[in-house]
Every structure is written in C-alpha cells, then in structure tokens.
Design a binder for these strands. Structure first.
Lengths: 340, 340
DNA sequence: AGAGGCTTCCAAAGCGCTTTGGCTATTTTG
DNA sequence: CAAAATAGCCAAAGCGCTTTGGAAGCCTCT
C-alpha cells in the first residue's frame, strides 16, 4: 500500500493525502479525518526511503562507534544505550551505529552527514579540544555531547554530570574524617571526565592546604585488573594513602582484592569511595564492605540525551545549552576515620 | 557531486556511469577506468537514500533491541557489538538498533522488513520455540541467530557455542575429582543456552549414576547479587554442594563473596567453575583464587555473525547451516578434590 | 458588481539512483 | 556476403514520497 494507491482509493491527489497525513493546514478537517481513517484501516505507512529521498530526513540518530582490535567498547555504553532505547522506542527513533576505525572517525562523520543518513548524532567520551566536536559543529548536523570538552573556541550543547563537584565532595568527606594522604585511581586521563575528577580531588585537598602527589594518582582504563595493580602500587609506597577515590566500580573490585591480598581491611586500613554509574549487575551495597559512592545513573543520561536529540531535530531545542547534573554522594561502610 | 554531474562531466550517460561503478559487464574496460578514476578524484559517493529507493537495499544490518523500564541490556551485548563492529567497519556495514517494547517485538520486525530498512537482521538470546525466529523466517529477510532455539519445525542459520558440551566437561571434571554433590547457578532458564548448560551438567552426573537435585539448580538473571544469593542458598542446604558450576563471571563474583561471608574457602570447601565470555574488564585469572572457566569469546562470535550476515546479503551463503563452536575448559586454582 | 482574499484541492516537478528496452556500430557466422 | 550476434552506449521510466505553483470555488468588501 503506497501513497498512490491510497489516494486513488480516496479519489484524492497524492498531494492532499500527503498533506493530510503530515498535518499541513491547507486541508479540510473533514477530508483529513477521512484520509487518516483510511490510512489506519489499510495500515498505510509511508516508505521511509522515499520520504528520506524527498526530505533528506531519516528519522534516525547516529553514533560513530570507534572500533579496532585494540579497542574495547566499555560496559558503560550498554547502560547508556538502555536509556537511549527507552526514549527512542516511544518516539519511533532508530539508532544507527556506524563502526569506524578509532583513529579515523572523521571520514565516517563526514559520510553520515553528507549522505544524510541520520538527523542527529551524539558524541561520548569527549576529550579536551576534541576534534569530533569541531567537526560536527562545522558540518552543521544537530548533536549533543555526553560529557564535556574543554579549550574549544565555540559553545555546544551537552549533558554532563558534575564530576568535579562529586569528587570534590568525596575528597572533602575523607579529609573531614582526618585522612591526609589521599590517592586517586582514575580513568583514562585524556578524557575530560577524568580531568574533572582529578580537579575535584585536588581542589578539596588544596582547601586543607594539602596536595595530591604525582605518585598518588593513577590513570588507567577501567578494568578490574588495573584497579588491582593501581592499588597494589599505591599501597606499596613509602607513605601509602589511607584513602582512595576511584573512578569506577569495576576498578574498585580490583582495589578490594588488592587490599585483601595485602592483609589489610576496609575501612580500617583504607577508606574507599568509588564512582557508581549504576549498573544493574554490580551494586556498591553488595561489596564485601558496602561501598561509598558518588552516584549517577548513566542510563538516565542516555534517555535524556535521546530526548534532547529529538527536540533538536524537531527544532524545539536550539542554542548551546549545557546541562550539568548533580551527583549524589552515598556514604556506606567503606569509609571511616583515618587510622592513627 | 551526484550522478548527473559526474556523467555530464564525463560526457557519458548516467546509465553507463552507474554501470561502470557497479561492475556491470556491458561497459568498456577503458571507459570503466575513466569513470572510476573520475569518481575517486571528485569523491563521488552514491546517495544511499536514492540507491535504497531504487534497489530496496540499504547496506545496513538490523537488530531489534528489547527495551522497557524493567529491561536491562546485559553487558554481553557490548562485547558482541565490539566484534560485530570490527567486521562491519571493514565492510562498510552500518548497524541499526531498533528499540522495541520487550513484549511486542513483532511489530518492529514487521516494520523494518516492510520498510526495507535493513538487508538482514540477527537475533540473540533465543528461547525454545522462539516466535521471533518463526517470524523472520516467514518474513523472508536474511538472518542469523546467535544461539539456538529448539522445537521449531524448520531449520535456520545460526551460530552457537557448545554450551551443553562445555558444561558436560565441567561437570565431568568435578566428578573425576570426587565431587558427588554438584550445583548449577544458571542464567534465565527460559533461554536455550541455559537449558543446554543444565543438560550438560545433568548428562555428566547421569554418567556417574548421579542426578542434579531440584534444589541444586538456580536460574536467575546474571548479576553479582543473584550469584551471591544463589550461593548463600545452596551453601545453606542440609547437604550443600561441594562444587558449583556457574553460568557467568559476574555471578561468580557473588559466589566468591558468599563463600567468604560464610568463612569457607575455594577450592578447599567448594570448587567453582564459571563460564567466561571473555570480557576485557573482568578476567577469571584475576579472581582471588584464579577461576576455572569454560571459555568462549563472545566478541569473536559477533565478528563471525557479521561476516555471515554479509555473506547472506550478497548471496554467498545460503541454506540453514548451523555452526557450533567448541568451548575450552580452562582449569585454574578454583577446583580441587572433594573435601573428605 | 468587480476586486481581492480564503479555503481547498491538484498536476507536475523534483530527490538521485537503478534498470529496462533499444539503438548503433562492429564482429562473427553460415 | 548477407544475416546474426555482440559490444557499448543512451534515453527514459521507474522507486514513493514531498513540495512548488497554480487554480477553482466561494466569501467578503467597497
């Protein structure tokens, strides 16, 4: 059932039927009802390929997926996707993932924009002066950044959480508990979120006249193994930290294992706070010692990004508003006063 | 730069240019070279919307993503996606995720097929008599199933691992070590993979004249918390198991925690074998006691599924071949002889 | 009563590609 | 050597939609 058949059936022109269906004003309400009724009865659905060719709009949002043998998509992605899907489902949006060589994403961005394959894109894990942002900005496709960049000479729309604030709070709490030697086990410090977190911890320390020693900060991809290694290294220092702030629950697993291996205890010998993105399959309250966390649902962020993308596509959102979500600090058993 | 401009520039018809580019035989090789050369020089890329409208082919593969508030996409998905992306990237395939209400995926399948939005789809986490398979089979779109169904009256192409064989081996090893009371912590037993795994364990026990008691098998979604709960329950039984086979590394984390909570040890009091899908961020050799596993890379499966989908799209693969990968049993410190 | 303005509809021109059917040389065949 | 086959190219007809530029009919003013 295509437009021609439907309009023949109604003894109307394709023009009128098309307009009736798309809500244009220049059609009699009575006629519109007839058309919409017939369309529904016959299960008419406009062919998206044709519509796309005519309008240049695809009804899809895009994501360039960095791939490569050395590239692992991290598990945060899937949670974000859950949220995105929640919203997209109820708004008939599809998501197209365009795999790209991690070292050359530009070609792919150019392709999907030139081909009008998607109406909008989102970008995640941005870095300072991220070239992708400059690119999509000049390409002129609607986009939203999940996270933030820095050092760019233009504004852009984003959704981020207050990473600096969260880790500042975490640091402050530990200092209040009398800890003097903090350490930070961070994610990849080329990404802005990691930079912000480090900044937050440093700011907390500075307020107490302390600093974060170079040897007291680790930046690694967020695996259990890296958490373990970082903790072993930190706890093997001459002046080991009495408290650790950690960027990921998965790394925290490794930290806990390292502490055990060394015969130490949490929070007796070490206080631990980690960031929790809220995975359904790994919850901080279920750690051997319930884990204090800075908590922010990445899934909700996914839904919100989808919502804003949809708004931008339909022209409801304009400008370059940045949205920053506060982060909860949830105190559980893994923190205590500094050991004497 | 579109086809018309390019053909004008070459003083050829659109027909000839199109054919030259698409490798049709009725064009002089000399001409073809000229055309391809000019196309490359001017960066001509056929507009996919137009091509799709004309041919009905989209160059994309589809996946219907079950979503909903109660639905979590599990982290396996992202690893599978990594593999899929690896292959897709080098073959200019995009993946479109169509979010659907988990309880009504049929509508979405029908839509993407009717609209010719994708050239092929894959289906994951199949169940016995899975209606999705019957559906896509009758809809006539090329597809591959990751996993297997059962009880269907038609054949279909799939890629699966030998879940039954793997868990049979795991069970057999434990029996050889003198264990008499095995337990199974499984995934959702509505899914075929879980059924196969249980079958494998039962078969191993049966060969020794033993059985798997009802109370010795748990079927739960694969979270750390569920692993913990299952283990607590099992180890609290009158005749607790001396060995557990577990369907997931994430659940195994919970098992390990439960064992610790109870003051027991692995492998002294309990032997443990888990299935490892090979996540980069959680490795069995890094468990407090290195974990024995049945191991199969879900990422490689993703790449293979993409490869076969591409082959089916281009007509290189036909029929209903099922492909079953063997699974390695990797023995590490978490198994030992049964306690006296 | 004629000009101007709405309302409501339509024919036809794209959008950029593929594919059908045909045409002209050139080569092969009986 | 005429007939048939082949190679190489082209014009034009789709694919199914949106949108432009009217046009007819009916009011409303002045």
């Amino acid at each position: 059932m295509n437009l021609k058949q439907l309009s023949d059936m109604l003894a109307l022109s394709q023009t009128t039927v098309s307009r009736a269906l798309n809500g244009y004003p220049e059609v009699n309400e009575e006629t519109r009802r007839r058309v919409m009724d017939a369309a529904k009865r016959h299960g008419y659905r406009p062919n998206p390929s044709a519509r796309r060719l005519a309008t240049g709009k695809s009804g899809m949002i895009g994501y360039v997926l960095p791939t490569g043998n050395a590239v692992d998509i991290d598990p945060h992605f899937v949670e974000f996707l859950s949220g995105l899907g929640d919203y997209a489902r109820s708004h008939d949006l599809d998501l197209v993932l365009s795999p790209a060589d991690a070292d050359d994403q530009e070609t792919t961005y150019r392709r999907i924009v030139a081909n009008r394959q998607v109406d909008a894109v989102y970008i995640s894990s941005p870095r300072p002066s991220d070239r992708r942002l400059a690119l999509v900005n000049t390409l002129g496709i609607p986009f939203i950044v999940h996270g933030r960049s820095e050092g760019l000479d233009f504004d852009y729309p984003y959704l981020d959480i207050d990473n600096e604030g969260a880790f500042h709070e975490a640091g402050r709490l530990l200092l209040q508990l009398g800890h003097k030697r903090l350490a930070l086990i961070n994610g990849d410090d080329r990404e802005t979120f990691a930079i912000h977190r480090e900044r937050g911890v440093r700011r907390a320390l500075a307020a107490s006249g302390l600093t974060l020693g170079e040897r007291h900060v680790c930046s690694l991809t967020m695996t259990e193994e890296n958490g373990y290694r970082a903790a072993r290294r930190l706890l093997g220092l001459d002046e080991p930290p009495t408290a650790i702030v950690c960027s990921s629950l998965i790394m925290a697993l490794g930290v806990v294992r390292a502490v055990r291996d060394l015969g130490l205890t949490i929070p007796g010998d070490l206080s631990l706070i980690a960031h929790d993105d809220v995975f359904p399959w790994l919850r901080p309250e279920n750690f051997p010692v319930p884990l204090s966390t800075t908590r922010s649902s990445i899934r909700l962020a996914g839904a919100r990004v989808a919502e804003r993308l949809a708004a931008r596509i339909s022209g409801l959102e304009e400008g370059t508003r940045g949205e920053v979500w506060p982060v909860d600090l949830v105190v559980r058993g893994s923190v205590a006063g500094a050991p004497a």
